[in-house]
Design a binder for these strands. Structure first.
Length: 220
DNA sequence: CACCAGGCAAGTA
DNA sequence: TACTTGCATGGT
């Protein structure tokens, strides 16, 4: 079977089993962007607490966060972990937008997808997954987000080689699927959802679904 | 108690 | 180039 067919069936199976995941939670593109940095290697629940703190303090805006002293910012995002590190990373990201795009987030997000991704990747502390998450979920442009779960799950189904890199695995999806924001949005969220079910002996499946052999998930 | 979560960069060999 | 380590809180 072609990769395209397998991915389509996997997607349909996951959607039928779990339903739409409602990603990315956040009231504004700016909030989504901030969340993308805060959630690096961090449970989403902790990120929500940090974002609540920022809202409470009335600083959840480009101008608001930019004006905040580093130590103050670190204190507010403390629940998200790595708070000193992430305060610096957020600061780097905001500086890029302020300097290169005159602090105009809408203008930045209206650029071409490659311009957005390249600009984000130049920021120290923003890697491939964070850059693509911001591009897809905040800027609403059709790039497929890959993460650790994606490697594990695709590897388990023989669609990813063990030595494949981030951009190579991304190509597997983007070569096989139509470039549609809603599809990329939901597919990534569903793969994360499936990844969280790791090692369970039972779980939702459908007849003939290529994901039926997913349990238990093999650690790579 | 140990383990890990919607990563990334810097250091080591 | 290919591993390893630091970063840190909070839930299970």
């Amino acid at each position: 079977m072609s990769t395209r067919t397998l991915l389509n069936e996997l997607y349909q199976c996951l959607l039928a089993a779990y339903g739409p995941q409602g990603w990315w939670p956040g009231e504004t593109p700016f909030e989504v962007m901030v969340g993308a940095v805060l959630t690096q290697n961090t449970n989403w629940g902790n990120v929500e607490k940090a974002i609540a703190n920022l809202k409470q303090a009335g600083v959840l805006s480009l101008a608001g966060l930019s004006a905040l002293p580093p130590a103050k910012l670190a204190g507010l995002i403390r629940p998200a972990g790595y708070y000193n590190l992430k305060a610096g990373r957020l600061s780097n990201l905001l500086a890029m937008i302020n300097q290169r795009w005159e602090g105009d987030l809408e203008w930045f997000f209206s650029q071409s997808m490659e311009t957005i991704r390249r600009s984000l990747l130049e920021v120290k502390g923003v890697g491939p997954e964070t850059a693509d998450s911001i591009t897809l979920y905040a800027a609403n442009q059709p790039v497929f987000v890959v993460d650790a779960y994606t490697f594990r799950i695709l590897g388990r189904h023989g669609l990813a080689e063990p030595d494949m890199g981030y951009f190579e695995l991304q190509e597997v999806f983007m070569d096989a699927l139509p470039s549609e924001v809603p599809l990329f949005n939901e597919f990534h969220a569903l793969l994360v959802r499936l990844g969280k079910e790791r090692c369970k002996k039972t779980g939702p499946r459908c007849e003939g679904c290529p994901a039926q052999g997913w349990l238990p998930v093999v650690e790579l």
